[in-house]
Design a protein around this nucleic acid. Structure first.
Length: 570
RNA sequence: CGGGGUGUAGCGCAGUUUGGUAGCGCGCUUGGUUUGGGACCAAGAGGCCGGGAGUUCAAAUCUCCCCACCCCGACCA
């Protein structure tokens, strides 16, 4: 490609709409433009990156035995109604009607379609296992799209769905994908951390997330400083603390605490640490009142609560609900004397909290010296809190750390959740009809592109890994008006191209400084500069974007040299 | 969905308080001088001031309604 024939609209200034690095740089480097909130055009340069990522994904999916297919973006409502997710998905789903008033949606995912398809066509255990995948657009009407490509409403995903006879088969398929994913992100030049995660609404058993470590990531990851343990904070278990405090129980005492609604206010007013306060959170779990007790310095992990209760919806009770369902005035709730129909869940730490402070269920009053057993009962103790830095690793007991990450891939064991409701059954060896055992494995392709920029950039622009750079080499003559230089540049560009290296010749009538700035911004891994000396001494300058190293190379050896370096470093 | 903010040239912004003929920088066009890290001089082009309604002799500026976008929170296969 010659720059004069290309479409690479770079920007000098940072568009005001972007404040994440990847978003800013992709806009500035002329790879991305916004069409609407969370919806983007990917310009030719960005598209090349996307194609390279997709190619790696395809190669590894195929290597693992996957077969590619295409499914529609527009999906009929009926199949979603059949799986029950038409209602569960809520406003996240783009819905539309055709001229006959039939309901459709823009597919947020494809479990329903693929399960239906495979269920229709596959009847015998002899035809399994089957690994089918697609790379295509998916749609989610996010409440708040943000961070450019990291959280859009339209995005490209690779999804592979595995169909097996039984759990053992699923294990094998899952393992293949785990290996494939490791290879994919490795080949994309990304540094990845695999974490245990919560299965969430998609359901099923084990799940792993592939995270690109980056401060801008939305996911919080707990990982051990000593061993290889890592988990999404949504899931990260908190080990039970050892000993109950050997403190004598003091008599229960009712105190006036005017205007103290938050834990901080109560603790400050009474002059005690927040961890002495018994925090109570009131929820409606599928409409039923549930109270969760937790130490004042901790946060409730609502996912753990939801999973414990097997609830579809868990929401914080608002003031009306608190009055109607809990029979309480707002702000001063506590476990002592709660109505019996309210289920009380308590985090493990609460059991050891002696002589705590809790709301008295009447305005402006708290109890001191509240103790479990004597003063209140609970429905169940379990792990209901959010892990935090410094907690003990559940695997080895050493302190854990908290870092942020971008989820670029996730593996799920779906089991028979979808095959059962959609009737995707096979006859097993004994002639018995059984549901297929499924797994699903996603990679956010557009998100991976953005994550690569989050991970690879400096003050001057993007630093692409060689394997997914839009072009591997840019050729720049110092003078665009010196025919000796431009002839050499053109010749070298042709040679690079012919030898299979992705090269671009910046032949624009721009000053050298502009070309250098653009080259750094766009992030070509290699910059080849030709000056008036090059023609005489037959040397060109090779500058590496990632290290900044500059070398003089005989131009006769350029192709061979670059090819060996680019390949060996991938 | 709750809270906050911003909409003025392709991009970044001033002008709005106190109503009076639309500005700056970058980019773009033409000519000239330059040419190893976003050059310089000169001359130009480019605006429904987000949209609608109102107040006024007069509205980018005041009032009301709507829309879009951004940020924080909640939410998120």
């Amino acid at each position: 490609m010659r720059a004069t024939e290309a479409f690479i609209p770079t920007l000098r200034e940072i568009p005001a709409e972007a404040d994440t690095i990847s978003h800013q740089l992709l806009l500035r480097a002329g790879m991305l433009r916004k069409v609407a909130a969370g919806i983007y055009s990917i310009l030719p340069l960005g598209h090349r990156v996307l194609l390279k990522i997709e190619r790696i994904v395809r190669e590894e999916m195929n290597r693992a035995g996957g077969i590619e297919l295409l499914m529609p973006i527009i999906q009929p409502a009926e199949i979603w109604q059949q799986s029950g997710r038409w209602d569960v998905y809520g406003p996240e789903m783009f819905r539309l009607k055709d001229r006959h008033e039939r309901g459709f949606c823009l597919g947020p995912t494809h479990e329903e379609l693929i399960t239906d398809l495979v269920g229709q066509e596959i009847k015998s255990y002899r035809q399994l296992p089957l690994l089918l995948y697609q790379i295509q657009n998916k749609y989610r009407d996010e409440r708040r799209p943000r961070f450019g490509l990291l959280r859009g409403r339209e995005f490209i995903m690779k999804d592979l769905y595995s169909f097996d006879i039984d759990e053992q088969g699923l294990e094998i398929s899952y393992g293949k994908m785990y290996t494939a994913y490791s290879r994919i992100f490795d080949r994309c030049g990304l540094s990845i951390r695999v974490v245990e995660a919560d299965p969430g609404a998609i359901g099923g058993g084990d799940t792993h997330e592939f995270m690109v470590m980056a401060d801008t990531g939305e996911a919080e990851i707990i990982f051990c400083t000593a061993c290889d343990y890592a988990a999404d904070i949504e899931k990260a278990p908190c080990p039970v603390d050892g000993q109950p405090a050997a403190i004598e129980k003091q008599p229960l005492e009712r105190v006036r605490t005017p205007g103290t609604r938050t834990v901080e206010e109560v603790a400050k007013y009474l002059g005690i640490p927040a961890m002495q306060v018994l925090k109570i959170m009131l929820y409606l779990a599928d409409g039923e009142p549930v109270a969760v007790l937790i130490r004042g310095d901790r946060s409730v992990n609502e996912i753990k609560v939801q999973n414990y209760l097997q609830a579809i919806r868990l929401e914080i009770a608002n003031a009306e609900d608190v009055a109607a369902k809990f029979g309480l005035p707002p702000g001063f709730a506590g476990p002592v004397g709660l109505q019996s129909q309210v289920r009380v869940l308590a985090d493990n730490e609460v059991r050891h909290l002696a002589n705590g402070v809790a709301g008295a269920n009447e305005p402006d009053h708290h109890y001191r010296n509240v103790n479990y057993g004597r003063d209140y009962q609970v429905y169940a103790f379990d792990d209901f809190r959010v892990a935090r830095e410094g907690d003990a690793c559940p695997k080895c007991g050493q302190p854990v750390q908290l870092r942020r990450g971008i989820e670029v891939g996730q593996l799920f064991k779906l089991g028979t959740k979808y095959s059962k409701v959609l009737g995707a059954t096979i006859l097993d060896e004994g002639g018995k009809e059984v549901p297929m055992v499924m797994g699903c494995y996603g990679i956010g392709v557009t998100r991976t592109l953005a994550a690569a920029v989050e991970q690879g950039h400096d003050k001057d622009g993007i630093i692409w890994p060689y394997s997914i750079a839009p072009y591997e080499v840019v050729v720049i003559p110092v003078s665009q008006r010196d025919a000796l230089q431009t002839n050499l540049a053109e010749a070298l560009y042709q040679q690079l191209f012919a030898s299979g290296i992705d090269a671009i010749y910046d032949n624009r009538a721009e000053r050298t400084g502009v070309k250098f700035k653009d080259a750094d911004l766009i992030g070509y891994p290699v910059r080849v500069v030709i000056n008036d000396g090059s023609v005489v001494d037959r040397l060109v300058e090779v500058k590496w974007r990632n290290t900044g190293n500059v070398e003089k190379i005989p131009y006769a050896d350029l192709c061979t040299y670059l090819r060996s370096k680019l390949v060996s470093n991938n």
